[in-house]
Design a protein around this nucleic acid. Structure first.
Length: 573
RNA sequence: GCGGAUGUAGUGAAGGGGUUAUCACCUGAGGUUUCCAACCUCAUGUCACGGGUUCAAAUCCCGUCGUCCGCACCA
């Protein structure tokens, strides 16, 4: 019974609700699938996990935190590919009501079905007599767009701009590339992190915290120069064998250190390997069981349109292996996409040459006095078309195609050949980006799942939530041995002293037997419990109990608070 | 979104066209005890929501919403 994983999952979920950690949102109004509240024991836990994540990357020294809006204009998401990507079409069967992705139905009949318009999808489906995958009927409704983004409008009155709630935080970091580049004194590599809410209007959210409609994301964009070899020191992980599941086309699952995997080109880019290693560190530091982590490489067909290599960190828990982090090498896809969509050319970095380059070239330049009268308003286009001829020596007269598609004829008297001599010190290029993207809620779920320990005490079932003290919502429970003789007042004083100490949080519990109160604290993962007894009244000492083994030590209150604040409390045992 | 199951205190469950809805745990108060879920007394709190049938609905019917399973979908 106790080992049935489904029953364990139900007990865990019940406990999280009962104790106010994670609860369905808006429940008195009937609830909404895919939306959850973090309750009184969950809010701080989530924030501490979030902070642990931010601090983990801050230690690297070349990563800064930014924060951008969740409401995002449509044009941004068209440029990024999300409007297309998140606008899949569904076809519904009139026979059984089953709904399928239209582009999946016509796979094999078209080389690239996901670019097709709904009309073409319908035509392809009917031309090829596609059967319903459920009932076999050939009777389809028209393909309908299925937008997985929440749409809204900017501006309260009629009109305004179409916008979406961001489906990821990454775009905000790309928008800020020029500011980041400036901040880092024009030197790569550097990175930016952002945590916050993301939104996806899932068709059918299931599996509790795993598929949400509004979720906490934490993303990092690390910008690198593709031509500079990345040197990362993997020696810290030499003895850490990661579970790697590479694209089956290339390799079998294997256990290997990240340094080796990078050297062996199983992980194709060293910076991707670096972030995989740092991700592993983070997950383990917040309490994920390292034996339940694996990295799975996306197969060619599965990889997002922009990525050149992508590894998911998957964590094993009550729902099986769940993707919790995606680490993608996105090339220059995003910056290039935003440049071409906007005509902006500030999403670049400057790469100085080792040696300045002497440029000595002949170009054909328009004579303003001739081109102007000859072409009038098109003179500007003619000049830029001539510039584009760089390096060619044309034979006059010749036809020149302008960017607006028209052709003009250029005579010899309209131009002069110029010799350009210059010294070029470098070039502008589009940086590449490596993006580790974390699903905070999924990680938090697995932290709870891995910490939830059902044991026995005196023959009776007993549960302990073995949260890492660095993320536990409550650091310490303050328990008067009994609520009289002034013990309760002393306990309240200690409680207030701890709560007013930076980064510490305690709760006071005076009801029930002392054993019951230890049990309550253990169940929600409070790592330390302090008991105030009569001796405390005499010499200002208390006993502190360690959650994980029940060991107790008597200690001065000041020493207690100081050690809690410095996270060194385990040293007193 | 489709099909099936389902919705009763904070949690887990029993019951069920009839006026006061049951049990355990939990929670709170008092007593007792005083370092690992002890005990006694008392107390709070519930039939998902909306509509229909009926003299009477938590119970039967319909709809909505939620949950679970299967299909489909899924950064």
């Amino acid at each position: 019974m106790m080992s049935d994983p489904h029953a364990r999952l139900e007990r865990l979920t019940s406990m999280l609700r009962r104790r106010g950690v994670i609860l369905p949102a808006f429940e008195i109004h009937g609830g909404v699938a895919g939306l959850f509240d973090f309750g009184p024991m969950g809010g701080r836990l989530r924030r501490r996990l979030n902070n642990a994540w931010l601090e983990h990357w801050a230690t690297q020294g070349d990563i800064v935190e930014i924060d951008s809006p969740t409401i995002t204009p449509e044009s941004v998401l068209i440029a990024s590919g999300h409007v297309g990507e998140f606008n899949d079409h569904m076809s519904e069967c009139n026979g059984c009501g089953g709904a399928f992705r239209s582009d999946h139905l016509v796979e094999g009949f078209h080389p690239n079905p996901d670019v097709l318009a709904p009309k073409d999808l319908d035509k392809l489906i009917s031309d090829n007599n596609v059967n319903c995958l459920t009932c076999g009927a050939i009777d389809w409704k028209d393909a309908q767009p299925m937008n997985l983004m929440f749409s809204t409008r900017i501006g309260a009155m009629k009109g305004g701009r179409t916008a979406y709630m961001r489906p990821e935080t990454a775009q905000g970091m790309f928008m800020l590339f020029p500011a980041l580049y400036h901040h880092f004194r024009n030197r790569l590599p550097f990175g930016a992190v952002q945590t916050g809410k993301g939104y996806r209007n899932e068709i059918s959210p299931r599996q509790g915290m795993i598929r949400l409609r509004e979720f906490n994301m934490a993303e990092l964009e690390y910008f690198i120069d593709p031509e500079v070899e990345s040197n990362h020191d993997f020696s810290n992980w030499d003895s850490c064998l990661f579970n790697l599941v590479p694209d089956p086309e290339f390799s079998e699952p294997i256990e290997m250190s990240p340094g080796e995997a990078s050297a062996g080109n199983i992980i194709r880019h060293p910076t991707v390997a670096w972030f995989m290693a740092r991700t592993w560190d983070f997950l383990v530091s917040v309490g994920i069981d390292p034996t339940k982590i694996r990295f799975r490489q996306h197969e060619g067909t599965e990889m997002a349109h922009y990525a050149s290599d992508c590894w998911d960190a998957e964590i094993h828990g009550s729902y099986g292996w769940i993707e919790c982090v995606g680490i993608a090498h996105r090339g220059c896809y995003d910056l290039a996409a935003h440049e071409s969509a906007t005509g902006d050319n500030n999403l670049r970095a400057w790469r100085p040459y080792d040696e300045p380059m002497e440029v000595d070239k002949m170009i054909v330049a328009g004579k303003g006095s001739v081109i102007g009268p000859a072409f009038k308003e098109k003179a500007g286009l003619v000049n830029s078309a001539l510039e584009a001829l760089e390096g060619m020596s044309p034979v006059f007269p010749f036809d020149l195609k302008l960017t607006d598609g028209t052709m003009v004829t250029i005579d010899e008297n309209m131009v002069e050949e110029k010799r350009i001599q210059a010294t070029e010190h470098g070039e502008w290029f589009l940086p590449h980006v490596v993006e580790p993207a974390f699903g905070i809620d999924r990680i938090l779920w697995h932290v709870l799942d891995h910490a939830y320990d059902e044991t026995e005490k005196g023959g009776a079932p007993y549960t302990v939530l073995r949260l890492d003290p660095s993320i536990a919502a409550i650091d310490v429970a303050i328990l008067p041995l009994m609520e009289k003789d002034g013990l309760d007042e002393v306990a309240h004083d200690i409680h207030r002293q701890i709560c007013s100490t930076r980064n510490l949080s305690s709760y006071y519990d005076g009801s029930g037997s002392i054993g019951r109160r230890y049990a309550r604290a253990d169940e929600v993962g409070v790592p330390w419990a302090v008991t105030v007894d009569h001796e405390s009244m005499q010499d200002n000492t208390v006993t502190i109990r360690r959650r994980d083994d029940g060991a107790q030590v008597r200690i001065q209150v000041d020493e207690l608070v100081e050690n809690l604040a410095m996270s060194t409390i385990s040293s007193v045992f």
